[in-house]
Design a protein around this nucleic acid. Sequence first.
DNA 1: TATTTTTAGTGAACGGTGTTTACTTTTTGA
DNA 2: TCAAAAAGTAAACACCGTTCACTAAAAATA
Lengths: 218, 218
Amino acid sequence: MTATVSSPAERRRNKIRARILTAAETVFAREGAEGLSIRRLAENIDYSPAAIYKYFSSKDELVDELKESFFELILENVNRIADTATPFHERSRDCVATYVRIATEKPYHYAAAFTGESPAGDGPVDGEPGFESSKKGQAFNVLRGMIREGVDLGEFRAEIDPALAAKSIWASMHGLAMMIVHIPSFPALRPDQPTISREEFITFHADQVIRGLEAHHG
Amino acid sequence: MTATVSSPAERRRNKIRARILTAAETVFAREGAEGLSIRRLAENIDYSPAAIYKYFSSKDELVDELKESFFELILENVNRIADTATPFHERSRDCVATYVRIATEKPYHYAAAFTGESPAGDGPVDGEPGFESSKKGQAFNVLRGMIREGVDLGEFRAEIDPALAAKSIWASMHGLAMMIVHIPSFPALRPDQPTISREEFITFHADQVIRGLEAHHG
DNA sequence: TATTTTTAGTGAACGGTGTTTACTTTTTGA
DNA sequence: TCAAAAAGTAAACACCGTTCACTAAAAATA
């Protein structure tokens, strides 16, 4: 590793890149990928649209960076809960519930992170650099580790394959996150339907999901 | 009810409307909403783009009809399984698994049905005609009925609220469907990762989800 | 320092999108 | 038959992502 990893030119470049990303983040958080247009973005930072392409090869690439740093946020939060010293059932429940909470705080980010470019199109998940190294992959590994711990502790059924169970749980929590993101009133199905609060429902769902794994010491 | 509910003019109109929808369906199934453009669609049926607007007020309205009839397909299939005379656990498992299977057979339809117009934007779910009357709503009611039956049979825990549990299960199955739709290799996370087949995973997941509701007669 | 080379930035264009408007042609119903 | 309604259209509007040829500035080299 060299002592000075960046020339002044390089630092200047990164600064402008960051400025573009910051402006993009603001718009994206409010209006999503459709609302974020290169032309509007360029106007926001007083550049020509073509200038953006000196820093990002496409709109997709730009948005991909927003998504990746969003999953870094999720990972941080999930990790924080995973390292708590609370009893296993609560800890695992809060862990997956946190995933949904953070996800739904930035609905456009979360939806875009999975909607990717297209159904049947390969998202960043099985991209070249490898799923394992992506923030999404790291978050998955935390979950798998937690399930392995549960099996070792005897909380979960012994025959459970942690990798498989992790995918199942991930899918379940993903589903809830997507529901909340796309149905504003969820868990109410109609705007006026009386029901429990969203927070309570997330906890209930997480509980339900963890319960599916548990051993029943009769 | 009048004997002849449609004039020749009206029937002719419906025929053209149907022709537009059929052409749209074909393109949509292969390329999704983005790939379906009014201009291309018009060319396919030898009309001008503006002509489409004599039959549909917007592209969204057109796509909404595709989505609704897709959920009719889901509903039919789920209902068929729900009416089977197999034991309760298998029946309920197959019921929710079928939802995922049909969903993933038309990935663009399923994704679009929930992605709707926007996160935080109200989809057809809490639209004016009411969720209950939509095909999506009817499918939900089937699920809730099934859970109620499970509680009555003593298969599920007595304290379970069928409506709440139905939402939880729906979310879980929705999550799996979305995973499969957006990650082509799922349940493999990388294209070459060895894992169980998709069919097996759907069954496994459905089983897991039903398990979360079950009473444990220790 | 002078000069070459690389980079930053731009205006204009290409090909695409959904949608509207003014207009013409066809069909319908009295 | 003839007015009214509906079907259909060409052209335009206002967007979009992206590319290209070009100029201005900065950096690297001699």
